[in-house]
Design a protein around this nucleic acid. Sequence first.
DNA 1: AAGCTCCCCAACCGCATGAAG
DNA 2: CCTTCATGCGGTTGGGGAGCT
Length: 271
Amino acid sequence: MGRAPCCDKNNVKRGPWSPEEDAILRSYVETYGTGGNWIALPKKAGLRRCGKSCRLRWLNYLRPDIKHGGFTDEEDEIIYNLYNEIGSRWSVIASQLPGRTDNDVKNYWNTKLKKKLLSSGRMSRMNHPASSSNHVNDYLADDNACIPVMPGSGHEQPQEVALNPIYRFPDAFGTYQDLPPQVQYTSHESRLSSSQEYSISSITNSPSITSMDRTSNVSYIEDGRFFSDNGMGQMWDFVNELLFRDEFPVRNHRRVYQPSFPSDDPRMFSN
DNA sequence: AAGCTCCCCAACCGCATGAAG
DNA sequence: CCTTCATGCGGTTGGGGAGCT
């Protein structure tokens, strides 16, 4: 048995949205929300549209936080780097560009950026995401995986950031909802004799960096132990979960500890 | 001015996924 | 476990505006 259509195509309007329809949809969603049911929404709102069409119109055009207008050079760079890493995962790429939708990014890539990169010769230097066997794609095949994100501007080591994979946890991890949306990991030269030290930075939409390395006295790794001394329990859980993954994304550095989670002392564990 | 081509982007389509029953 | 269905995603289409002849 085939799947039933989501709406009666003979009784719904298709094609471009009129300003009146936009106003009805905007007003309804702002007043009542989507109710978690886009299929029922058009009937309730008095629109002769398919629920899917309403959802798309809202997400891609009417949402108040949508950014209209041209892409910046910085956005170009983010798209280029992410496409190079993960291919046409437009929703993932768009999630790193505040105010941009997957449709926006996809259209922009197909119509402008690709040509721009071709003419500059950068496309020929790209990885081939679809056939890539790099670990980033492996990560992305896992539902619980961390998703690579671009570094924010203003990082103190931009060259290194460009070489190392950077990850964020999906927003769906409600327990970490207090964290900034992106968390970046980079490794840098150890200042400790027996272990690598990692700087763990959170990037917000602004270019500011919250350092969590030893010098800022927030948390640090030493001799296989992770220390946190400022009540950043959620961050600590988060960091551990990431670091325990076999694929911990720091190349050319040994992992400094093995899973021994949970510890009695929520601030510390060792292997 | 008219006709044509190209390009952009909003919108659609079909499939995958996951939740619910 | 199976079926149904809503949602989300990436690929594709086509209307209309811009630019060219």
